[in-house]
Design a protein around this nucleic acid. Structure first.
Lengths: 95, 95
DNA sequence: ATATTTGGTTTATATTATAAACTACTTTAC
DNA sequence: GTAAAGTAGTTTATAATATAAACCAAATAT
């Protein structure tokens, strides 16, 4: 009846991040922070978790002398997102 | 861009319970436990939280000598569910 | 030069979710 | 009639999460 929801994605911030990365494919830390309205600390922690889960890759560079963190979604991340979307729909309609 | 998700409903078990109660209007503890595949302890705790939030009402009776817990959704619960459904959709499509 | 800003990370704390243990009673089997 | 197993939960303890606060290193502005 109810499909299990991937706990990695069942988190407001992590879901928002993946939702963004699914379309843009690549985004800066600051862009994600802006779009999700998260605090830096929270975003930093949640990005690490998405990375540990293999859902995103994180690349650290420098841009105009400042550190720059770039995030990209992986095929596993895309897949997990699509699964999640499919599964949560079982909760959203009346039974 | 992303709407905030009611933390009371952004929980797999509580969302499942509300999803059920939205259609059936009234259900026993044991029925909810069966349908959601939850442990008794977890269900008990989450029902209390839904009650504290004013999303459900809980009535305790006896049926055939056994204790019976009946749950009903409130107008506030219905409203919160509909809001939640609307809001989570902002996460589920590509941006 | 020192104060502030940028772009983060780490650590500590509060909140949640889950599981395990327990309560209270009933039914069934001996 | 009493011991064992089952019903219907609640409470408590533990693990997992989210959030905030503090911190770091370097750059820029005053």
């Amino acid at each position: 009846m109810f499909k299990d929801l991937d706990p990695i994605l069942h988190s407001q911030l992590r879901l928002a991040v993946i939702s963004l990365l699914v379309s843009v494919k690549e985004a800066e830390f600051t862009y994600l922070k802006e779009q999700t309205d998260a605090t830096s600390g929270n975003l930093s922690v949640q990005l690490q978790k998405l990375k540990e889960a293999g859902y995103i890759e994180i690349e650290k560079k420098f841009k105009d002398n400042y550190p720059q963190t770039i995030c990209k979604i992986t095929p596993g991340g895309i897949n997990a997102f699509e699964e999640y979307v499919k599964n949560i729909k079982s909760y959203l309609t009346k039974h």
